[in-house]
């Protein structure tokens, strides 16, 4: 994990718990995130058959970058039958911020992932910054989800229907189809798995607690 000073880690992985089959790690920011010219790279590898739970102590704000940019790249590799949950906290793109985010997930056969994220365009009472997010997920060699969200003041009103907040829960490699708690806001992906989505004017309106609980249950 590197930032604008390439020698300094900006996110410290803090081990909360680990044993031979599982680990729980908190991604703790060291100093202010996210500023102009920051280049965050998060590589997550979970070897075959083990489980990793990632948590974040709080949300992240991408601040006004005054014409400059920042990047936030996440690469996730799951081995056969590996499991990852990532309980993401809100990512706020303040007015004037310009962030390119990438999520690349590669899952081997039998692997499963549950990821929660909340995108907030602009802090309370301000307009949106610019954020382009690219997500791709490949399961056992087959693309199962590819999405670009180029969000800024001109595109966000259409793509998000005038909402400021987009909350998502992604479950891949398992199904929650029989879970009645999790039927609303759910997109059933072609290749199995689900993407729950809720749009809202405020972060508390766009939460998906039932979906997240269902996704974590489905992971087992």
């Amino acid at each position: 994990m590197t930032g604008s000073d390439p020698t300094a880690a900006l996110l410290r992985p803090m081990v909360l718990h680990h044993d031979s089959e599982a680990a729980r790690i908190s991604l703790v920011p060291e100093g202010a995130l996210l500023l102009a010219d920051d280049a965050i790279e998060i590589d997550v590898t979970v070897d075959a058959g083990v489980r990793l739970d990632l948590v974040e102590p709080g949300g992240t704000v991408a601040f006004d970058m005054r014409g400059r940019r920042a990047r936030w790249d996440v690469r996730i590799r799951l081995g056969r039958d590996a499991v990852l949950t990532w309980a993401g906290e809100p990512f706020v793109v303040a007015a004037g911020a310009d962030v390119a985010r990438r999520f690349d997930l590669v899952l081997a056969a039998g692997a499963a992932v549950a990821i929660r994220e909340t995108l907030v365009l602009g802090r309370y009472g301000e307009g949106p910054g610019r954020m382009s997010q690219h997500s791709s997920a490949v399961l056992d060699g087959v693309p199962v989800l590819v999405e670009d969200l180029p969000l800024d003041a001109t595109t966000a009103p259409g793509l998000l229907g005038g909402h400021r907040v987009l909350c998502s829960v992604l479950l891949l490699g398992r199904s929650a189809l029989t879970d009645p708690e999790a039927a609303s806001d759910r997109l059933d992906l072609e290749a199995g798995g689900h993407l729950w989505r809720r749009l809202g004017a405020h972060a508390h309106e766009a939460r998906l607690p039932d979906a997240w609980a269902a996704a974590v249950r489905a992971i087992g």
Binding site: P143, L149, P150, G161, L187, L199
Partner: peptide
């Protein structure tokens, strides 16, 4: 196929559902 644009529209998807 990998060159096909992938721009999603969460609002249209929610309305369609």
């Amino acid at each position: 196929p990998d060159q096909i644009p992938a721009v999603g529209c969460p609002q249209i998807e929610a309305w369609a559902e």
